[in-house]
Simulated scan of single mutants.
Amino acid sequence: MVTHKIMIVDDDPHICEIVQAYCEREGFLSACSHNGEDAMKLLASFEPDLIVLDVMLANDNGIDWCRNARCYKNAPIVFLCSHEEDEVKISALSYGGDDYVTKPFSPGVLMAKIEAHLRRVSTGRREQLLELPGLTLDYNVQSVIMGRETIFLSKKEFGLLSYMAQNVDRVVSVDALFQLIWGMESLEDTRTVAVHISNLRKKIEADPAKPERIVTVRGTGYMLVAEGALQE
């Protein structure tokens, strides 16, 4: 059984205690932070499946924090709003929030929303995976899973690997990769593809100097080799 991790960001310790108690009752792991700076550190270390976030933190704006967090994590965010104004709720949802509960709130209602979003994510994640022998791409968090290791990639690295994975064991031209990832209007040139491929190899190759997964096809481009082909 999967144990979901819930991160709570609220400057009111009492609210944190209540939400954590209900999370534990449902079998979830939980962690709490009381300010934006500590919450960003917790986001990286705890890797939550869902975030409960107060709109108004002491010395911080929860909506701004949400916008920054979205650069690193796509986990659902349920806002706790102490305001009834539609403008606040619209802003919360427009800048990365998935749902909201108005204070004072019913813990039962909050938990029902949390469980609903976790079910949605679990269903969606099965559709966000591209599985190859020895390598799985996770489109939800732009990562590649190799064995038991999860490797996070930059947007362009993931784009390159994703396109090659969709054309596994086939040569993909440098020009095709460049146009797909950088586009016609880019001020870069095709040499940037080689730079990003080199960085990608450092993350997924056992020996980047002697690549076996992403091979160079001289004069043409690159090919992602399926793991089974490496063992033949």
Rank of each mutant, 00 (worst) to 15 (best):
L177T: 09
E188K: 05
V2R: 15
L153T: 01
F105H: 07
V195D: 10
A176D: 09
V193K: 01
F105A: 01
T3I: 14
M7W: 06
V101S: 02
I51A: 00
E84C: 09
M164P: 03
I151V: 10
E188P: 08
V88M: 07
K202G: 15
T216Q: 05
I51F: 00
N68T: 12
T190I: 15
K73W: 11
F152V: 12
R201D: 06
A69K: 05
R25S: 13
V121D: 10
S154M: 06
A39C: 11
S45Y: 00
S33M: 11
K103C: 05
K156A: 11
V193A: 00
D207Y: 13
L29H: 10
G221K: 02
N68M: 15
I6C: 13
L130D: 02
K73V: 08
L160H: 15
E115C: 14
M146N: 07
A229I: 12
C32E: 07
A69Y: 02
V78G: 04
A92C: 09
I181W: 08
V52H: 03
D138M: 04
N140L: 06
S45E: 08
E188C: 04
E232C: 06
E205W: 01
R218C: 04
E127L: 14
K203E: 10
L42Q: 09
P208I: 00
K89M: 11
L161M: 07
I8Q: 00
S122T: 15
E37Q: 15
H196S: 03
K156P: 04
S162K: 12
E131M: 04
I51E: 00
L93N: 01
W65H: 09
P133D: 01
F46R: 04
T150M: 12
E17N: 14
K41D: 15
H117C: 02
D11A: 09
D60S: 06
